[in-house]
């Protein structure tokens, strides 16, 4: 009689285990801490892990298939298979065990994916904010103070950058391959992404949502500059803007 409860107990234990894996991965990511999570590193780490995971599964299934194909090839004409008659227990075993294995793997990856997701979607307090308006077919960036630039986003290196975006005509998607991130910009909605240029340098921006004829030419770049160079660039642009308004 007691044996009946075994599956139930193992199911419970399974969820408890899964739960702890969630909890521990949440702990590792302390939202309140001041150090900035590195999503690019997180991406590379998780990507590697997932690739290993699916390669192992894939190679295992492929090898089993090849083994069966060779071992059970027809050796004489008219030969029939020798089907296995599964007992009741075997039927359930062949269902429950794979289901558990698949679900355990799913939950394990899901937990990690979720915590990386949190870091992707939680811009640090200290982020520098830039507004983006996309249109067919260009990117317009607006900095605090009203300075605008087209297709070139200048940012201070060493600071997390938060881009808030919308679109004036159709949907575009701000895609920054180097920072492993993208987000759609849409008319009537405001969306965001953030990234962390640790060093100075240039990075490609390109459009990832089909937007018509010039979709593939909607490229731009991010120029990460030293903080003081950025400040002086912004100040001079600001002065030019003032002068223009005064005129």
């Amino acid at each position: 009689m007691r044996r009946r409860f075994y599956p139930l107990i193992s199911l419970l234990m399974f969820f408890v285990l899964a739960g702890t894996s969630f909890a521990s991965s949440e702990e590792g990511h302390d939202l309140a801490s001041s150090d900035i999570p590195d999503s690019v590193e997180g991406f590379k780490h998780l990507w590697r892990e997932v690739m290993i995971d699916i390669t192992v599964i894939g190679v295992f299934f492929a090898l089993v298939t090849v083994y069966f194909l060779i071992t059970y090839r027809r050796k004489r004409p008219g030969q029939e298979g020798r089907p296995v008659k599964l007992s009741r227990a075997a039927v359930f075993g062949w269902a429950i065990i794979p289901v558990f294995v698949f679900m355990a793997d799913d939950l394990y990856l899901g937990a990690q994916g979720w915590s990386l997701w949190n870091s992707y979607r939680t811009p640090p307090e200290s982020s520098y904010e830039i507004q983006l308006q996309s249109s067919m077919w260009s990117w317009k960036f607006t900095y605090p103070g009203g300075v605008e630039s087209y297709n070139e986003m200048r940012v201070p290196a060493g600071k997390p950058i938060l881009v808030r975006m919308t679109s004036s005509d159709t949907i575009h998607s701000l895609f920054i391959p180097d920072f492993k991130v993208k987000e759609d910009s849409m008319p009537g909605r405001i969306t965001y992404l953030w990234f962390y240029p640790k060093e100075t340098g240039e990075h490609l921006i390109t459009c990832a949502e089909y937007c018509g004829m010039m979709h593939s030419s909607m490229a731009g770049k991010i120029i990460a500059m030293e903080q003081d160079k950025f400040d002086s660039w912004l100040a001079s642009e600001q002065a030019a803007l003032k002068a223009e308004e005064g005129a």
Partner: peptide
């Protein structure tokens, strides 16, 4: 097998933010 298993990284939304589209 190849097609189904490469669905797994896509299912992870944080990874998909890079490889989507």
């Amino acid at each position: 097998l190849i097609g189904g298993l490469t669905g797994i990284p896509l299912a992870l939304n944080s990874l998909d933010l890079y490889i989507h589209d």
